[in-house]
Write a protein that binds this DNA or RNA. Structure first.
Lengths: 107, 107
DNA sequence: CAGTTATATAATAAACTTATTATATAACGG
DNA sequence: CCGTTATATAATAAGTTTATTATATAACTG
């Protein structure tokens, strides 16, 4: 549950979501990830640290480079939590049906 | 996209997730929602405002009460965004299969 | 090896977030 | 109408996050 905090708050930032969207296309180094943003390299390094801490990305060491790729653990955890809300929302529609059914009761 | 910021950052807080979990069981008033927490009522009112602003809950006015219930719009939007990551993660496994296949090439 | 490239870390300022207390508002019950 | 209940708002203090600059480290390149 503590990890959901990290995962959701990592996703709350548009720069970080853009980084993830870029990584959805495939692995990329820090410099490649930084390039499209009007932001310094240290700022991107920090965002990557946040994403890694949240379990949203993983990194390899390759010489002087640190290629990043998407990781699945956090997405799985988030999906499981959201499933609860989805179920509840569906159940609420079910309840509405129930209410409508009860308006014309048997007896 | 601006709304994803609000939705994810609303979900980043454990108190707010607990409120949503409570609402998954059905509608509740502000006082009912506040009761399990060691936190003042104004603090809960603020959390509810954040959840409402993110499109995660909706509220009715019923006399002096403001019963809250789950709303679906934000969940839908989040799901759509996460679907992109899920697709990419699956594609990455696909790529791994590809790599393994390429290790024993036709020619 | 000297210079360059890729990345990380630290100090710090600015901008947000969250909780508290105090207070306001508005409907309810007698 | 008065007191109470349900909720919201404002001021504010404390804590957190984010970006910047400056600097460090470590691997590559000629």
């Amino acid at each position: 549950m503590a990890n959901l905090d990290a995962a959701f708050s990592a996703l709350a930032d548009p720069t970080r979501r853009a980084i993830l969207a870029r990584l959805a296309l495939g692995e990329a180094t820090v410099m490649e990830l930084a390039e499209p943003f009007e932001m310094t390299q240290p700022a991107i390094s920090r965002h990557l640290k946040v994403l890694e801490g949240a379990g949203l990305i993983a990194r390899r060491i390759e010489g002087t480079k640190r290629p990043c790729r998407l990781a699945s653990s956090a997405v799985t955890e988030i999906d499981q939590w959201l499933a609860m809300l989805r179920r509840a929302l569906e159940a609420n529609y079910g309840r509405l049906d129930q209410v409508l059914a009860d308006m014309n009761p048997k007896k």
